[in-house]
Write a protein that binds this DNA or RNA. Structure first.
Lengths: 339, 339
DNA sequence: GTATTCTGTGGAAATGCTTCCATAGTTCCA
DNA sequence: TGGAACTATGGAAGCATTTCCACAGAATAC
């Protein structure tokens, strides 16, 4: 049916070992022989079967990425970086989207055992500790991006510093009552990011000598709806905040929508700070803390390559910095008493 | 190293054939034997090697999708539908992003030959006719989504009717000078979509007895920048249009930005109609022609499954309808002379 | 009580490659 | 000129499965 290495060998009048050597660019082939074999390959339009190759080589030429909600703008942007590196390196990319705990655990249980991929990139999810031994035992090189586990090399953004800087910026603008919309800490997935961002908020508040008021913190899903609902609760307080810091740009969008619905002008009546720096933030003129999303994907891939080449490499933790992008959703608060 | 079927056989005290039968749920295994084998499998924590399985079965359990610019919101939305179906059916998804002609041709040349995937979904690109024989010969079941080729089952949106309806809506609102921003017809890829949309525009104009004025049609890249530049040209005409119909929502966003920059109020001074119905259009309150993107992905997958089960199935062309979503970027034109 | 069918089961063959070992031919050096 | 050291090559073994054929033993039929 399909043409195999034998057909090529026969046509070229050589042994199959020689064909294999030509295919793998072994130098131990006389030039004239190489020519003949290559001619036969062309004539038969032969392509080596990748599955059979994986069989003997023990490598698949495939990289896997586990990514929850791969339709979130943040994830997509990370994925872009991953995809670009992957294809540049000549690997193929298998995408495992996970939408719930069961799927996640399934992935982490199964993937390491099956030799389906040469490496694994996990984005925005931390495998439960239970599964860590699987990885170690299966020797599947793995890197975490936007997630952290001490026994796996991880690339994260410095969420504490990021949210600290965001809050500090707001404080410097004169805001004293600042609402904070955080993402779910222990929702479907363990986003420690949320916790870190909360720590940053506390720190900035503490330095400014302002008490953390629980009523000014709301937790919502990481999407627009989450931001919308949380901001409604915040802005309906008796003493509403003059600024809102949202843990994601999409939540900031929801906040913007609430403001519009309540006829609040941004930034005159309400200042809004986002987090992520997705393309949307640019359209919205949203002031935000930019994460190096694309770069996180690229870097994750680079680290994965190192891990594949040297599986003994000890795990490390890489922290990247966020960057404040000033746009036009933040101003100084009106002085309430002057009014 | 890794535990194989032999280890299981030995532990369970059966032949390897029996283990294989248990793994594949063959009914021809005595119940007591099955129990013993399953116990051994659990004890060794054995997982069959998917590569070796593919080797003998001739199937890979993997589906490939070729998708250009997989970061465009439209593509993502289609991909969502594809991913959901794929994982529901227990397949894995390999994503090939293509960004230029060379990559595209490479994909189309290579993929059919290598038995890497059991089926292929191609989104928004039509393979050159040269490669069609490859597919036929290689028996790789293939479906086109948002693209068309007579010899491959294709799922498309009725672009002619869609743009016809969009234009008609604008005409009914009283607009007579309507700018049309189209995507590149023969740019990097062959998007016949662009051509079809142009035909719809012509038809609506013709029915209304209005001449098509070439200066009112601009071609831009399918992104925001393309929309921005094209709309600038349009609005700087001596006699600028009162409405602009953009071939994608992202281009409509660019148009919105131009309008803002030129201090034109939408829809008072300028009406804008988009195309696609991505989430963004909702945030922007953009009136647009909605494509059933997610559904297109799902449907493509369903058709692919049929094709895999019955490779002899003749190609068919499935046209889906678009739907006008009225939001707030379209009004009636000011009567210039009254002014 | 023998011939026939059925039911489980074992294991060889096959899948298409890479790798390694053996070998024939060639070159080199004393 | 005889062996040592290379070089190029052929092909067997091995990779981890599935599938198929053969066969033993049990059940059934006559």
């Amino acid at each position: 049916m399909a043409t195999t290495i034998y057909d090529v060998a026969k046509l070229a009048g050589v042994g199959l070992g020689t064909v294999s050597r030509v295919l793998n660019n072994s130098p131990a082939v006389r030039d004239s022989t190489r020519q003949r074999v290559q001619a036969a390959i062309r004539q038969l339009d032969y392509t080596p079967d990748p599955i059979a190759r994986s069989m003997t080589r023990g490598r698949t030429g495939t990289l896997a990425v586990i990514i929850p909600f791969f339709t979130r703008p943040f994830s997509i942007e990370v994925l872009r970086g991953i995809e670009a590196s992957t294809s540049r390196l000549g690997f193929e990319l298998v995408v495992y989207n996970i939408e719930n705990d069961a799927q996640r655990d399934d992935c982490f249980r199964r993937l390491p055992m099956s030799r389906k991929a040469d490496g694994l990139l996990v984005v925005s999810v931390s495998p439960k500790d239970v599964f860590i031994p699987n990885f170690a035992q299966a020797q599947l090189p793995t890197i975490l991006v936007d997630a952290y586990n001490p026994s796996i090399t991880s690339v994260v953004v410095n969420n504490v510093d990021g949210s600290y800087a965001a809050m500090k910026y707001l404080l410097e603008k004169g805001h004293r009552r600042i609402g904070f919309i955080n993402g779910q800490i222990e929702g479907n997935f363990k986003f420690n990011q949320a916790n870190d961002r909360l720590i940053g908020v506390h720190r900035a508040l503490g330095e400014a000598g302002i008490n953390f008021e629980p009523e000014l913190m709301e937790i919502g899903s990481w999407d627009r709806q989450g931001g919308r609902l949380a901001s409604q609760r915040l802005l309906n307080l008796k003493n509403p905040p003059t600024a809102i810091f949202a843990a994601s740009d999409v939540q900031a969008l929801g906040t913007l929508e609430t403001a519009k619905a309540m006829k609040l002008s941004v930034p005159r009546d309400l200042s809004i700070m986002g987090f992520d720096g997705i393309e949307l933030s640019e359209w919205l003129e949203l002031t935000t803390m930019q994460q190096p999303m694309y770069h996180m994907g690229e870097l994750g891939m680079a680290l994965l390559m190192e891990q594949i080449e040297n599986p003994q490499k000890p795990p490390e933790l890489i922290r990247l910095n966020t960057e404040l992008v000033e746009r036009s959703t933040i101003g100084s608060p009106k002085i309430r008493n002057e009014q």
